[in-house]
C-alpha cells in the first residue's frame, strides 16, 4: 500500500469517529447509568462518563422484582410473535399473487399496497382506537395483534414481491409441467428459494412491531396489557421523582431482544433496509 493510500485510509477512519461516537454514546450512557449506584448517579461532582464507585445491579433487581417489567416483556413477545407470523403469511401470499399471477386489477392492488406502506401510524391512531373499542378490544393486547398487521403486511408484501420477482419463472413452470399444482410449486419450489427474503421480512416485522409505540400507548393502558416500550415510558416515570437507574435499566433490557437478533442477522438488516426503500 502506498503512503498516500495509507494516509487517506487513516483519515477516513478518523472522520468516522465522530459519527460512531454520536451513534453509540447514548447506548453507552444508558448502560452506564443503569449500573451506577444512586450515590454516584446523583453526585454532581462525579465524572458522568465512567463508573468510579463500583457496579451495582440493584436497579435491575428493582426493575424485575418491584415492577411489572416481566409482564410487559411477555406482552411484547406475544404481540410481536403473533403479529409477525400473521403478517408473514398474509404478506407472502399477497406478494406471490402480485409478483406472479395475472388477474383483474393486479396493478392497482400493487399500488394500493405501496400507498398503505407509506401511511404513517400517527395519521390513523385516533379513529383506529374507536374501531378497536367497537371490536371489544379496548385496553387489550389483542388489539395490537389485530392492528399491527396493518403496517406489517404492506411492508412484508412489498419486500417479498421484490424477492419473488428474482426467482426465475422457468423453475416454477418446470414443476407445473411435471404435474405440480401452482400451490405445490409455491410451497416446494418458490418459497425455499425465497428463504432469505422470508427471513428478512420476518426480522423487520419483528423489529417494527417490537418497536411500535403509538398504537400500544393508545390502545392499551392497564399494567397487565401494555408492552415493554409503553411500560417503561409510562409506569416507570409516574410521580415527581424518577428512578433514573431503573429507568435506564428498563430501556436497556427492552432493547435486548432486538440487539440479539441484530447481532446475528446484521446482513439481513442491511439488505432489507435498502430493499424496502428501493424496490
Amino acid at each position: 500500500m502506498s503512503r498516500r493510500k495509507l494516509r487517506s485510509k487513516i483519515l477516513a477512519h478518523a472522520a468516522l469517529v465522530p459519527f460512531l461516537v454520536f451513534a453509540l454514546f447514548p447506548f453507552y450512557h444508558m448502560t452506564l447509568t443503569s449500573l451506577k449506584t444512586d450515590r454516584e448517579l446523583y453526585d454532581r461532582a462525579a465524572v458522568p462518563l465512567l463508573i468510579h464507585q463500583g457496579v451495582t445491579f440493584e436497579h435491575y433487581a428493582k426493575l424485575l422484582w418491584d415492577t411489572s417489567f416481566l409482564t410487559w416483556t411477555k406482552n411484547s413477545l406475544l404481540v410481536t410473535v403473533l403479529s409477525t407470523a400473521i403478517s408473514l403469511v398474509i404478506g407472502t401470499i399477497a406478494a406471490y399473487a402480485l409478483a406472479r399471477l395475472k388477474f383483474f386489477a393486479v396493478g392497482s392492488f400493487g399500488t394500493g399496497i405501496f400507498v398503505t406502506y407509506l401511511v404513517p401510524t400517527s395519521l390513523l391512531f385516533l379513529p383506529l382506537a374507536q374501531v378497536v373499542n367497537w371490536l371489544g378490544l379496548g385496553d387489550s393486547k389483542w388489539a395490537l395483534v389485530v392492528t399491527y398487521p396493518t403496517f406489517l403486511v404492506p411492508f412484508c408484501t412489498w419486500l417479498l414481491m421484490g424477492y419473488f420477482r428474482t426467482v426465475p419463472k422457468e423453475v416454477e413452470e418446470c414443476a407445473m409441467v411435471d404435474g405440480a399444482t401452482r400451490i405445490q410449486a409455491l410451497l416446494r419450489i418458490v418459497l425455499p428459494i425465497a428463504v432469505p427474503g422470508l427471513v428478512c421480512a420476518a426480522l423487520f416485522a419483528f423489529t417494527l412491531s417490537w418497536n411500535e409505540f403509538i398504537y400500544a400507548l393508545t390502545f392499551t393502558s392497564s399494567s397487565e396489557e401494555i408492552t415493554a416500550s409503553v411500560g417503561v415510558t409510562t409506569e416507570l416515570i409516574r410521580g415527581d421523582s424518577y428512578f433514573w437507574g431503573s429507568l435506564m435499566g428498563g430501556a436497556v433490557l427492552g432493547s435486548v431482544p432486538i440487539v440479539v437478533l441484530y447481532v446475528f442477522f446484521l446482513d439481513y438488516y442491511v439488505s432489507g433496509l435498502t430493499a424496502g426503500a428501493l424496490k
Binding site: 447514548p26 447506548f27 432493547s255
Partner: peptide, 10 residues
Amino acid sequence: VIPTALSTLG
C-alpha cells in the same frame, strides 16, 4: 433498530 421510545428515554 432499537425501540425509539426507549432510546429517546436515554
